[in-house]
Design a protein around this nucleic acid. Structure first.
Lengths: 336, 336
DNA sequence: GTATACTGCTAAAACGTTTAAACAGATGAT
DNA sequence: ATCATCTGTTTAAACGTTTTAGCAGTATAC
């Protein structure tokens, strides 16, 4: 019942050749090693017949390569990261790599343990969405000399190749949509985490407000990441009490939840307030109002990340510590 | 620069003991092999000091285990599967397993190639969302004797353990919500794929209609999976032309897209039509109308799937070919 | 004083690859 | 006839673990 796996030596025995020869043929090195064509052909045929599948662990042990790319995101259930994972999966597959993933939940300890098991598995490369205080984990990995590229955010104190959306620009453009409508007070919502991308968005928000052609003040509310929904309720109420007539959400989570909460507070609110949100989940297409948002170039990020990772793994000496900022796309709908 | 990995033998050399002893200690088998406590302690200490990380490929080669669970879903970017992946990741981690995933795109060839690379990697177990015509791939895997559990849907002609939502019940309950409102003609939308879960939902829909306490006819429209948006536009228009006054969507994708399309056709439509949808993405909470839906017990599915998989991997002879149907939850909102 | 059992360790094989080096035999050059 | 070259293959080491069998030394039993 328990069918034994076919190994190189099974094939070798059946054909009365050496294991080495079979290996050479099956790894496509027959020509360079001048194996006779007819022999190579027969070996290939036999392998097919027996249903040979290479044992990747054995190969990996010998070669030191696993063919695995480790991806660590904040939460794979978040559509932004899910989509990202999907594109990365595709791009990696094109290059013959498999993807293994882990969700950090914005927790540096989890991040660290994921990275460390990935390392144990000899991943050939790492694509990491760093979290607050992940400097130490990243330093360890850098010392270990594993090819790594960071995406989505920077990590303070770490010099490493990075691909992410131009968050400042997004925050700036989004806020300007609101400013054009002459709102008097635009409240901004962001996590209380020290995440470079969210901070950049807020920086864009602030700059836009400062450069506005009329008098307007920033108003920023930080949401405790461990208690998002409750905190957001409080914050939203406070924004209303403080006469905010428009709202800026620094990410999809905050945007979506706010839409829900505002409606619960008062069904008229969503229509009366001006709103814009970073990220572009499908939910924003069917919400009322349809949320004006800033779509990150997820596919482009994935492509560039894999391209850069592959070139690093191949040892092509790309100039260290590149920072690639990709522009997103403003999606004008009807919430402003 | 390229820091060498620490191996058992590095530790052994530094401490003048044998590799075997170090292995025994680090794999927690010191006691049963009566290694002296002080020796064990020192080895542990040294390993920590040098930053030892086991080489999992070497271990895997020796033990035949990889510690990896392969998960193949239709599309990791779909929030349903993303959430599923997340729970599976968590549950697997609790048992010391890592998850590797692949997206099949409902394509049997892709499914097959994913399964086959997973097998090459010696995954210890497989959790598979089967697609149309995946019988052959699954038979191969069954012959290979890899522990497998199917989730979300059945695969025609394959006897294998299965965990999924009680789709029939969901379709039935959802339709009854509409029937209670006395709609005259309820149009149902479903993919043209032969997926057991979607079929079951439609069966529930049909039965509910047949058992209704007033005269009503089923009206079903099948959407070509390769051209969903265009087809859906056509179908929705047709439903309206055919005087449907309510709509039943067999999954989240169809529900979300329809909400968007209907609004584009005529902004009054979403309010005028009765609607219900299978699945419960967050989008349904902020759409207008808020969509009444049937939430699948994703966490429960994941937990049971991992539990069953682990017990199969451990060789606990669970009665073959279990079929576990888990009830979902009707979420009443205001689209009916 | 000899057999027996226990203690704490080492030795070595095995897992399935990859790959550099070696080899035998044929061919060619001198 | 000798040496070199080429052809097509084999040999064997190596990768880093795990695990079984065995070994030397000490303790216990009679």
């Amino acid at each position: 019942m328990a069918k034994k796996r076919i190994t190189l030596s099974d094939i070798a025995k059946e054909m009365n050749v050496s294991v080495g020869l079979v290996s050479l043929v099956l790894s496509g090195k027959a020509k360079e090693n001048r194996i006779r064509d007819d022999v190579a052909e027969k070996v290939l045929e036999k392998a097919r017949e027996l249903g040979y599948q290479a044992n990747i662990m054995a190969r990996g042990l010998r070669t030191g390569k696993s063919g695995i790319i480790g991806l660590v995101v904040a939460d794979i259930a978040n559509p932004f990261f899910g989509t990202l994972a999907r594109y990365i999966e595709n791009e990696a597959a094109k290059q013959g790599y498999q993807v293994m993933f882990g969700s950090s939940d914005e927790d540096p300890d989890k991040l660290n343990s994921i990275i460390s098991t990935f390392h144990s598995r000899q991943v050939d490369g790492l694509i990491i969405v760093p979290v607050e205080k992940s400097k130490k984990s990243l330093e360890i990995i850098q010392n270990q000399n594993v090819s790594t590229v960071l995406i989505d955010r920077e990590c303070e104190g770490i010099k490493e190749d990075l691909i992410c959306t131009d968050n400042y620009l997004g925050g700036f453009e989004l806020t300007n949509v609101l400013i054009k409508e002459k709102y008097k007070k635009i409240g901004a919502f962001v996590y209380n985490l020290n995440l470079s991308n969210n901070m950049e968005r807020i920086r864009g928000y602030k700059d836009a407000i400062q450069q506005a052609d009329y008098e307007i003040e920033p108003w920023i509310y930080k949401i405790d990441f461990n208690n998002i929904e409750k905190e957001l309720e409080k914050g939203l109420q406070k924004a209303i009490d403080n006469c905010c007539d428009a709202l800026f959400f620094a990410n999809n989570n905050l945007g979506i939840l706010s839409l829900k909460i505002l409606w619960n507070i008062d069904k008229k609110l969503p229509k009366e307030l001006g709103m814009v949100s970073f990220d572009n989940p499908e939910a924003f297409e069917i919400s009322r109002p349809r949320m004006t948002s800033y779509a990150q170039p997820i596919e482009e990020i994935s492509k560039q990340a894999i391209a850069m990772l592959i070139s690093k793994m191949k040892g092509v000496q790309a100039p260290k510590n590149q920072r690639i900022l990709l522009p997103g796309k403003l999606i004008l709908r009807d919430s402003q």
